[in-house]
C-alpha cells in the first residue's frame, strides 16, 4: 500500500512540467527514502534524476518498495485537473496496475480522484558516482534560462567555459556569434540573486542547447540553479525543490572528433 499526501500539490505539477519534454515514459520508485525517478531521454544523451524526500510529504506511507511505470504526458493531463492550491494524494495498492491521484481543495469542499493505468517500462538504472567537479556555478535560474533561450536563437550548441575571469557562455551560428560572460557577484539585495563561481580548475565544454533549454523548464521550481562542470563527466544542472529534494539533469558533452 502506498499513500503519499502532498499539501503543496502544485509542486508535483511543476515537477511534471520540468521533465515531460525530456522523458515520455518513466518508472517512479517509491521507498522509505522518498518518491524518486531516474530516466534518460530517448537518445540517451541526457538523464534526469528526481528526489522528493519522504519528510517533505505531510503523510508518507510506503509499505514496500514499489516501481510505477507512468506515461508522463498522461500523468500531466491528470494533474492538470487539480486546482493550484489543492492537496494531492498519490495512492496505489500493492500489485495494482493503476495509480490514483486524489485532489482536495484547501477548504475540503471539493474532492476528486483520477485513476491512471500503469505501464511496464524496461529501464536501465544507472549508477551516478560521487565526483569532484572542476567548477560549480550557482546563479539565478531565470538568468540561466534567458541565456540558454537567447543563445539558441543564434546557434545549436553552447560552449561553457569557466576561468579566473568568470563563466562564459558562447555560441556560433549561420547569422553570427554570441558570448555572455558572467562574473561572480555577491553584492546583491537577496541571496538568490547572487552569482557564485567556484573554480578548482579551468574547464570548457560544449553542449547541445536543445537539451539545456529543456532543463530550464524546471525554472519555476527554484530561484537558483547550480551547474557543475568537469571535463570527464556530464554537466549537472540542479534545481533544488524547497525542503523536499531536487531535480538534477545530466547532459553528456559534445566532443571534437
Amino acid at each position: 500500500m502506498l499513500e503519499l499526501r502532498l499539501v503543496q500539490g502544485s509542486l508535483l505539477k511543476k515537477v511534471l512540467d520540468a521533465i515531460k519534454e525530456l522523458v515520455k515514459d518513466a518508472n517512479f520508485d517509491c521507498s522509505t527514502t522518498g518518491f524518486s525517478l531516474q530516466a534518460m531521454d530517448s537518445s540517451h544523451v541526457a538523464l534526469v534524476s528526481l528526489l522528493l524526500r519522504a519528510e517533505g510529504f505531510e503523510h508518507y506511507r510506503c509499505d514496500r518498495n514499489l516501481s510505477m511505470g507512468m506515461n508522463l504526458d498522461n500523468m500531466a493531463k491528470m494533474l492538470k485537473c487539480s486546482g493550484n492550491d489543492d492537496i494531492i494524494t498519490i495512492k496505489a495498492d500493492d500489485g495494482s496496475d493503476s495509480v490514483t491521484f486524489m485532489f482536495e481543495s484547501p477548504t475540503q469542499d471539493k474532492i476528486s480522484d483520477f485513476e491512471m493505468k500503469l505501464m511496464d517500462i524496461d529501464s536501465e538504472h544507472l549508477g551516478i558516482p560521487e565526483a569532484e567537479y572542476h567548477a560549480i556555478i550557482r546563479m539565478p535560474s531565470a538568468e540561466f534560462a534567458k541565456i540558454c533561450r537567447d543563445l539558441a536563437s543564434i546557434g545549436d550548441t553552447v560552449v561553457i567555459s569557466v576561468s579566473k575571469e568568470g563563466v562564459k557562455f558562447s555560441t556560433r551560428g549561420d547569422i553570427g556569434a554570441a558570448n555572455v560572460v558572467l562574473r561572480q557577484n555577491t553584492t546583491v539585495d537577496k541571496p538568490e540573486e547572487a552569482t557564485i563561481i567556484e573554480m578548482n580548475e579551468p574547464v570548457s565544454l560544449t553542449f547541445a542547447l536543445r537539451y539545456m533549454n529543456s532543463f530550464t523548464k524546471a525554472t519555476p521550481l527554484s530561484n537558483i540553479v547550480t551547474i557543475s562542470l568537469s571535463s570527464e563527466l556530464p554537466v549537472v544542472v540542479e534545481y533544488k525543490i524547497a525542503e523536499m529534494g531536487y531535480i538534477r539533469f545530466y547532459l553528456a558533452p559534445k566532443i571534437e572528433e
Binding site: 534518460m40 537518445s43 540517451h44 544523451v45 541526457a46 538523464l47 536501465e124 538504472h125 544507472l126 549508477g127 551516478i128 558516482p129 550548441t157 560544449t206 547541445a208 570527464e232 563527466l233 556530464p234 545530466y250 553528456a252 558533452p253 559534445k254 566532443i255 571534437e256 572528433e257
Partner: peptide
C-alpha cells in the same frame, strides 16, 4: 564536427 557523447559513456548500469 562534434560528436555527441552518450550518458552511458560515463555512468554504468547499477
Amino acid at each position: 564536427p562534434c560528436l555527441q557523447r552518450k550518458i552511458m559513456d560515463y555512468f554504468k548500469e547499477d
